[in-house]
Simulated assay, not measured.
Amino acid sequence: MTYKTLLVHIDDSRHSAARIALSLDLARRWDAHLIGLYAVCTELLPGALRQIGSRPFAELEGRRAGLLQKAHDSFLAAAERAGHRSVEWRAPRGPAPEVALLHARHADLLILGQDDSRDAASYVAPNFVGNLVLDAGCPALVVPHAGSVQALGENVLIAWDGSREAARAVADALPLLENARYVTVDIVQPADGARERPVGIDVAAWLDTHGVTASFSTRRAHIGASAGATLLSRASDMHIDLLVMGAYGHSRARERVFGGVTRTMLESMTLPVLMSH
C-alpha cells in the first residue's frame, strides 16, 4: 500500500513553505504526484476593510493576484530544487472551504497546517482544517505551526480506542507505519474509570500481519488532564515524531462540534498528527 496522490494546502502564511517542503519529501518517498492547492480567505473581514479604507478594490485584486503568483512561483521553484517533476498547481476560484473539499476528495493524503491565530494569512475560514479532516474522506496529515519537522514517521504513536475512526486511521497510516522504526499503540483510559482488558494487543497483532511490529500499553489520564493532553505528554516523553488517531465530530445546527481529543489536537498539537474520520 502507498499514497500515489498527495495534496498540500498552500496559502500566504509563513508556514506554507514548510508544508510544501514536507509534502515534496513525502512525494519523493512514495514516488507520488503532488498537487499544490492554493486556497485562501476571499472574504473581506472587518480588519481588512479598515486597512483598505478608501483604496479601490482594483488595488486589492491586484494585491491578491500578486500573492497568488508569488505562491505559484515558490511552489514550482521548491519542486525544481527538490528534483520532483510530478507536481501540479491548482488555484480554483470559488469559496475556499467548498473548493478545497472537492479537490481533497481526489487525493490519497492531505497535508494541512494547524491554524495559527498569530498569523492572519493562515486564516481561510472557521474550522477550515477540522472540517476538511472530517469531511474529505481521506487521511489528513496536520502539521503544527510551532517548531519544524525534522523527521516524520520514524517513531509513531497510535492513539487507540477500538472505534471505527481509530481503525480507519491505522489502516490509512499503513504506508508510514510499514517504514517506521518504532510503533507503539496507546490506550488512554479515564483517570477514574474501570480498568479494561488491553485492547491494544488486538491492533498490534493485526499490524504484525502487515509487517509492522508494534508494542502496546494502557495508561490512565492524569487527574485533571484530558486524554488529548495525556497523549501529547506521552509523545513528548517518547520523542514521537508522528501521532496517528481517529478524528471525531458532528454538525449541530450550523456549528461543527469536535470531539475532545480532536479539538485538543487541532488547537494544541506539538507534532504532526495523521487523522482520519
Rank of each mutant, 00 (worst) to 15 (best):
P144F: 02
H250F: 13
L7E: 09
G162N: 03
T42A: 06
G113W: 07
M275Y: 02
L34V: 07
L45Q: 15
R55P: 02
K70S: 04
R14D: 04
G260D: 09
I20K: 10
Y38E: 15
R93P: 11
G246T: 11
R256W: 08
M1A: 09
A221M: 07
D241G: 01
R63W: 05
V203P: 01
L132F: 10
A235R: 12
K70I: 14
L242N: 04
D172M: 08
L34F: 03
L60D: 05
A100G: 10
R64F: 08
V261I: 14
L174V: 08
R55W: 02
S268E: 14
G228V: 00
L6C: 06
S122E: 05
A221E: 12
H33P: 01
A169P: 05
D172K: 06
A146V: 03
T42L: 11
V170Q: 08
V244N: 03
A180W: 11
A171I: 00
L112A: 06
V142Y: 03
V203W: 01
G62I: 10
F75K: 09
L44N: 01
V261E: 00
L102R: 12
R164H: 06
I201G: 07
P95V: 08
L177E: 02
S122P: 13
A159V: 00
A17Q: 05
R50W: 11
Y248D: 15
L6H: 06
Y182I: 00
S276R: 09
V183W: 00
E43G: 09
V257F: 05
H210D: 14
V143Y: 06
H9S: 12
A32R: 00
P126W: 09
E267N: 09
M238H: 02
A27M: 01
G259F: 10
L34D: 05
Q150F: 12
A173E: 03
A235Y: 12
Q189D: 12
E154K: 02
G260L: 11
A121K: 12
R252W: 03
E80Y: 05
I223D: 13
D115W: 10
R28W: 02
R254T: 08
A166G: 04
L34S: 02
L274M: 08
T270I: 14
